[in-house]
């Protein structure tokens, strides 16, 4: 493999997940009570395991692993969003979607025969996660608060998810329709978004730790709440 910027990103993503994990354990005493961040930790662990298996172990049926990864990613991202929103009805919708999506993934993994990756489940997953993320942002926009949205760690993590999923959406959708060379060219972009996502996750964890170290007053605007 020639040494190019594409290769740099390829190797970078193998270690990108470790950034969040390292920060998590470095600031563990501040984070241990936070279940939301544990979900992201779990997601990073799943990423490392799946990437390592695909890269270093010979695997006869990668579709099963892709499906497992897509399902885990959807499940963990949607659970994170579910725990970040307030509306109970929307939480229920997310739970129902998780069940339906799990059934769909099982059926797809059993019967579908894609050429390279599981484009359809990834596409559906992206659309659903983007819808849930938009809902989170809408809820934050409608809420009367004294805290800027970018001072919340959830905002950075959800923005990371959105940029990664939205950026890779078309590449995954067309993955089965393009030749290997073209896909390699575009795959570089998914690596960029993947790295960006992990950087945003790291910013999220740092913001959370900063707030834990210097807690802000609960409410500065008594008249408005």
């Amino acid at each position: 493999m020639t040494r190019t910027i594409e290769d740099f990103f390829f190797y970078l993503i193998l270690f990108a997940d470790f950034l969040f994990i390292c920060l998590y354990f470095f600031f563990f005493k501040y984070i241990r009570a936070n279940k939301n961040l544990t979900i992201i930790l779990l997601y990073c662990v799943v990423n490392i395991v799946v990437n390592s298996v695909l890269e270093f172990a010979s695997f006869n049926n990668p579709l099963l692993l892709y499906s497992f990864f897509t399902l885990s990613e959807f499940f963990l991202f949607s659970t994170f969003i579910m725990m970040s929103i307030i509306n109970t009805s929307m939480k229920r919708v997310i739970v129902v979607t998780q069940i339906l999506f799990s059934i769909f993934i099982i059926v797809y993994a059993t019967y579908a025969k894609p050429r390279s990756i599981d484009s359809i489940p990834v596409g559906i997953e992206t659309i659903l996660i983007l819808i849930f993320s938009f809902y989170y942002l809408y809820e934050q926009m409608s809420k009367v608060e004294n805290q800027f949205i970018y001072n919340k760690y959830q905002f950075w993590i959800i923005t990371g998810m959105m940029i990664y999923l939205a950026g890779s959406f078309f590449i995954y959708i067309f993955a089965n329709l393009v030749d290997r060379k073209t896909l390699h060219q575009f795959w570089f972009l998914t690596n960029v978004f993947y790295t960006l996502k992990n950087i945003l996750f790291a910013i999220g964890i740092l913001i959370y730790v900063k707030q834990k170290k210097n807690p802000a007053p609960e409410n500065l605007q008594p008249y408005l709440n």
């Binding site: 799946v50 990437n51 695909l54 890269e55 990668p62 892709y66 990864f69 050429r115 390279s116 990756i117 078309f170 590449i171 067309f174 993955a175 089965n176 329709l177 393009v178 030749d179 290997r180 073209t182 896909l183 390699h184 060219q185 575009f186 795959w187």
Partner: peptide
């Protein structure tokens, strides 16, 4: 994630991507 297989690319697909 890294196992990619395809044989030919239709014209315009790259642009669409």
């Amino acid at each position: 994630m890294f196992l990619l297989q395809a044989s030919s690319t239709s014209p315009g697909v790259s642009t669409a991507m």
